[in-house]
Design a protein around this nucleic acid. Structure first.
Lengths: 108, 108
DNA sequence: TTGACATGCAACCTTTAGGTTGCCTATTAT
DNA sequence: ATAATAGGCAACCTAAAGGTTGCATGTCAA
């Protein structure tokens, strides 16, 4: 899971994921077009995304096609974010409860 | 939002958040007890978490109390993860549809 | 079959991240 | 008043991250 968090920490890599979200199965060259850095730099970012299992690769001749894998993001959301999400909702609930108490009981 | 992703990228910082999730409002010293590094290192991590607005701080005398703020995590979940979550559900849906077609139409 | 295209590999550089050590300051308790 | 406690500040170190350049390789198209 650490690899996924690390992979998501970089703006360029998030842009790559967004790019694949817009149009899945793009080649390295196509993905490069949207980032202001050399092809080799993009390659490195994509290798990290592959290592985190966020991107899967299929070779077709000399072309390397990249596909988004949403599963790791889903897992993070389930096992990690969900916990804090519940806390957030609870905080909102407490706030609401507090406000309602205010309505019926002004000395608080 | 970048600051939040970066803050979450480090295992020690995630542990700090988990620690606060277990027991909110801990002092620096208390938080240090759970990590195998110097107080100063922990301070740096906490400063990053504060910068990302994931942790809020209240001074009480010489004690620095740390409180978890789940809002940024919620925002990430809403504006970023949700998008890929939907993709994931859609993929599952497509898979399910495919299986059902298999049941009724075996030549696929 | 040869040139252009798509990508890989490896060495290198610079900045940042994570951590340590040493010392200083402010608050609390005796 | 003073000693112990809780924490801040700043310099420093090392490793890793992000990026570049140069050259090599495999595939396609004329």
């Amino acid at each position: 899971m650490d690899a996924v968090f690390k992979a998501l920490a970089d703006e360029s890599r998030r842009k790559l994921l967004d790019q694949l979200h817009r149009s899945n199965g793009q080649t390295l060259g196509e993905l490069c077009a949207h980032l202001d850095m050399t092809r080799q730099a993009v390659t490195k970012h994509l290798l990290l995304l592959e290592a985190a299992n966020l991107v899967a690769v299929v070779w077709r001749g000399r072309k390397k096609l990249h596909y988004l894998n949403p599963v790791p993001i889903h897992e993070i959301s389930e096992r990690w974010i969900g916990k804090y999400e519940r806390l957030h909702l609870q905080a909102l609930g407490d706030l609401k409860k507090g406000l309602e108490q205010h309505k019926t009981n002004d000395e608080n």
